[in-house]
């Protein structure tokens, strides 16, 4: 599979100060319908934190789908981790997807797998050995407070518990970019704060975070977070930070 994919030397993007994602005049339409997303141009840098807001139907989920490579744009170009994701051969996309953590709005847990196995899934897909992943998954279970439910199937978990499992699954591989669709929609305010703090912790380690939400009050929870607002498929930029981003965070060795 990888033989035809462009080889990029592994250098943390944060050190190179390269963009994680660049959208250049991107449009998306489904079939022959009108464009769901129109003329999107923005850049996301390593270590940035973005809240994506907008009314229902504004195109938030469609934009997230482009970000987690479920779709290619109908026009324009998307560069991701230094690759042209708009034209990269299909067989090369799994390598990029493993660098992205996704929290789906409907959780998408595998129904016949236990909580433990659902959280371990990205690590297993990435080829991590069983002996190496057990401790990591156990720590994550403890963090989300579901150690006692490690063997439970999703159908027996509450909505909030399922959401925590979905988030744990998205972050366990320490992704370079985290994309979350309404990740705090089913949890109580205390758990919502804890989950946002988890995102913030990852963000401080260099993970770029994009959180789609209706709740603009969440913006106050994360220092330095930027807002991307979608209105009828077009992106407005109230903080002015997307076209003129602040200086990216630089880690020093």
């Amino acid at each position: 599979m990888d033989s035809l994919c462009p080889v990029m030397p592994f250098v943390p993007f944060i050190a190179l100060m390269q963009s994680v994602v660049e959208f250049d005049n991107v449009g998306l339409r489904y079939g022959a319908g009108v464009e769901t997303l129109t003329d999107l141009s923005f850049t996301l840098y390593p270590g940035s934190f973005h809240f994506l807001t907008g009314a229902s139907g504004a195109g938030k989920t469609s934009l997230l789908k482009l970000l987690y490579l479920a779709h290619r744009p109908s026009r324009g170009a998307i560069r991701m981790f230094g690759h042209d994701a708009s034209t990269l051969p299909r067989d090369c996309l799994p390598g990029l997807r493993r660098r992205i953590g996704v929290v789906f709005q409907d959780f998408r847990l595998v129904p016949h797998l236990s909580t433990f196995d659902n959280i371990a899934l990205p690590l297993r897909i990435a080829g991590v050995q069983e002996k190496d992943l057990r401790g990591t998954v156990a720590e994550m279970l403890a963090w989300i407070g579901l150690t006692e439910r490690a063997d439970a199937r999703p159908a027996t978990l509450s909505g909030g518990e399922q959401q925590r499992v979905a988030i744990a699954r998205a972050v366990i591989g320490r992704p370079e970019m985290l994309v979350a669709d309404e990740p705090t929609g089913n949890v109580d305010p205390e758990m919502a704060r804890r989950l946002l703090q988890l995102f913030a912790s990852l963000n401080k380690l260099g993970t770029t975070v994009v959180v789609a939400t209706h709740d603009i009050h969440l913006l106050q929870e994360i220092e330095g977070a930027q807002m991307m607002r979608l209105d009828k498929g077009r992106l407005s930029d109230p903080t002015g930070s997307l076209r003129h981003p602040p200086r990216p965070l630089v880690l020093e060795n």
Binding site: P94, G95, R97, R108, L121, I125
Partner: peptide, 15 residues
């Protein structure tokens, strides 16, 4: 559904 979830997490077709 399971195939799709694996796919979105970077699972290859062969996996």
């Amino acid at each position: 559904e399971t195939i799709e979830i694996m796919h979105m997490m970077g699972g290859t077709d062969i996996q």
